[in-house]
Simulated assay, not measured.
Amino acid sequence: MTPPRTATTFPPPVMEARRWLEGVTFPADRPLINVSQAAPVDPPHPDMRRAMADVVLGDDSAHLYGPVLGNPALRTELAARTARIYAGEVTPQNICITSGCNQAFAAAIAALCSDGDEVIVPVPWYFNHKMWLDMSGATSVPLTCGDDMMPDPAQAEALITPRTRAIVLVTPNNPTGAEYPDGLINAFFDLAQTHGLKLIVDETYRDFHSHSGTPHSLFQRSDWQNTLVQLYSFSKAYRLTGHRIGALAASPALLAEIEKFLDTVAICPAQIGQHAALWGMRNLDQWLTGERDEILRRRSAITDQMPRLVANGWRLRGLGGYFAYMEHPFALGSADLAPLMVKQAGILCLPGTMFYPDNTPQAAHELRIAFANLDADGITTLFDRLEALDLQPR
């Protein structure tokens, strides 16, 4: 008997990690440090919340079905913003709004892949991408990143077969934090274009990129629509995680296929969240700049604290967006180390084994730290606890 699609993949990793907290108590002088999930814990800006309340009370249409591809005003605003950020040409017809960025990825794969088709995914990978490919009947083809956590286009080309449909990049990367340079992203675009593939670029953490200027130049290409599928999320920028508002940029022809998926799955994105995202883009640029600056300060705090751990054999493999990706020095594998750290150090983080194919040796040596919800004092405390871990070294 053929198993159901959901049985072809693993349980949600963040939910699995939360189960490690069951039965564990944390004393008042050593509360839990939760660095397992990359999601803001603070609510949206108070002015945004008031704007949302005004919509709830005063806009009757916000309680009805909306257009499948999203609020036209929001699509227009995001198209203009994307064109401005990337110095390219993007129209509202290139934009659709989705129920979170995960749904944007799911919609793209649904429109591109059939059973047995292949998608090249750099590893360590974002586990929800892998899960959706499993449940879609598509094959995830792992592309091992180099020591600098960068994927190699030449190695990717060697993995292309007649069943390959797309290559996926996440930048700034989840889980490693690595920020792919423009030249590398363009090299992958050229590779995809040459072989008639789509290049899916997930930029969920774009608003917290450490470099000023355009994150990449793909939208400046006159033919970008034939190859590029860009994914974006409003969740991190405006603290709208619970409202599930993401976006996708692609050709109108591909969006026509994606519309079939979105209409069947959710009919339309949540109206209140869409109004919030629109209000945020129109009113919170200065506030968002401050949010980015704070994340960059926390990133710098990681860099400043890291020598303490390096002295004990730790290694920082990647840093950016919301993430510090670390190699630990212990003999114990990360799948066992991460739940042990809950009990011994009051730290909840995710093991590298959640971001690799099964039985990948290097996964046992790696941990993902989602640092964005820790201030400078919290990061110092985190490093105090990591430094104090006393386990058998490798």
Rank of each mutant, 00 (worst) to 15 (best):
S334Y: 10
Q305I: 04
L340K: 14
M150N: 04
R163I: 03
S136A: 14
D147L: 05
A51S: 07
G137P: 00
R282H: 09
V265G: 06
Y180Q: 09
T194Q: 15
H328W: 07
V41F: 09
D293S: 11
R30F: 03
L21S: 02
I109S: 04
C101Y: 11
A335C: 09
R49I: 11
C113K: 01
L367H: 04
V168K: 05
R292G: 01
E77Y: 05
A192C: 15
L350F: 05
H63E: 03
E259D: 14
S99N: 11
I167Q: 02
V265T: 14
V342C: 07
A166E: 06
R394A: 13
N359M: 12
M135R: 05
D263A: 14
R75T: 03
N373R: 08
W314H: 08
I379P: 13
T2P: 15
T139F: 02
D223L: 03
A345L: 07
A376N: 12
A187G: 09
M131V: 00
T82I: 14
V229Q: 13
A138M: 06
P13E: 01
N283H: 09
Y180H: 15
R30K: 11
A154W: 04
P3T: 10
F188Q: 10
H216W: 01
M52V: 09
L319F: 12
A7W: 03
N359V: 05
A364M: 06
R81F: 10
L231A: 08
Q155K: 14
P393I: 02
D59Q: 09
L184A: 05
A110M: 00
R81C: 02
L218D: 01
F219Q: 01
G70D: 13
I258K: 08
V141N: 03
L78T: 12
R84C: 01
V24E: 07
Y238N: 01
A106Q: 14
L112H: 04
T98E: 00
P43D: 06
P46W: 06
N128I: 10
W224Q: 02
C145G: 01
S210L: 09
E257G: 03
T6Y: 10
T241R: 12
F219H: 14
F127T: 02
Q271T: 13
D207A: 11
M150D: 01
I97N: 08
L340E: 08
R75I: 04
C268E: 08
